[in-house]
Amino acid sequence: MSNADLLPSLLSKIYQNQLALEAAIMELTLWVEQRGSAEVASNVRGALDTISKNEESINMTLAVLMTPE
Rank of each mutant, 00 (worst) to 15 (best):
T50R: 08
N3K: 06
R45N: 03
I51C: 12
L48W: 10
V44Y: 13
M60N: 05
M60F: 04
N3R: 02
Q34P: 04
L48V: 05
Q34F: 00
E56T: 09
P68G: 07
I51A: 14
L7F: 15
E56C: 06
E69A: 03
S12H: 04
A24I: 05
L62C: 15
L6Y: 04
E56P: 02
G46V: 12
I14R: 00
I25C: 10
R35G: 07
M26D: 10
Q18W: 12
N59L: 15
E69R: 02
E39T: 03
S37L: 01
S52A: 11
L30I: 01
E56K: 09
M26C: 02
Y15E: 01
N54Y: 09
L21C: 00
L28Y: 05
A23G: 08
Q34G: 03
N3I: 05
K13M: 13
N43V: 04
A23H: 03
L62G: 14
A23N: 07
L7V: 13
M1I: 06
S52H: 13
Q16R: 08
P68Q: 11
A47C: 07
E69F: 05
V32G: 13
A63M: 14
Q16C: 08
K13D: 11
A24L: 11
R35D: 08
W31L: 13
V44T: 12
S9G: 12
M60W: 01
A20F: 12
K53D: 06
L19H: 04
M26W: 06
A4P: 10
R35Y: 09
N59M: 15
D49N: 15
S2I: 02
Q16W: 05
D49F: 15
L48M: 11
I58G: 14
G46T: 13
R45G: 01
G46R: 13
N17R: 14
A38G: 05
I58L: 14
L62T: 09
L62R: 14
L10S: 08
S12W: 02
A20Q: 13
N17L: 15
S12P: 00
L48I: 06
Y15F: 03
M26A: 07
A47I: 12
A41S: 13
A4F: 15
P8I: 01
D5V: 11
L28W: 02
N59Q: 14
S42E: 13
L62W: 14
L48F: 11
M26P: 00
L30M: 00
D49E: 10
A41M: 01
N3H: 08
A41K: 02
E39N: 03
T67K: 00
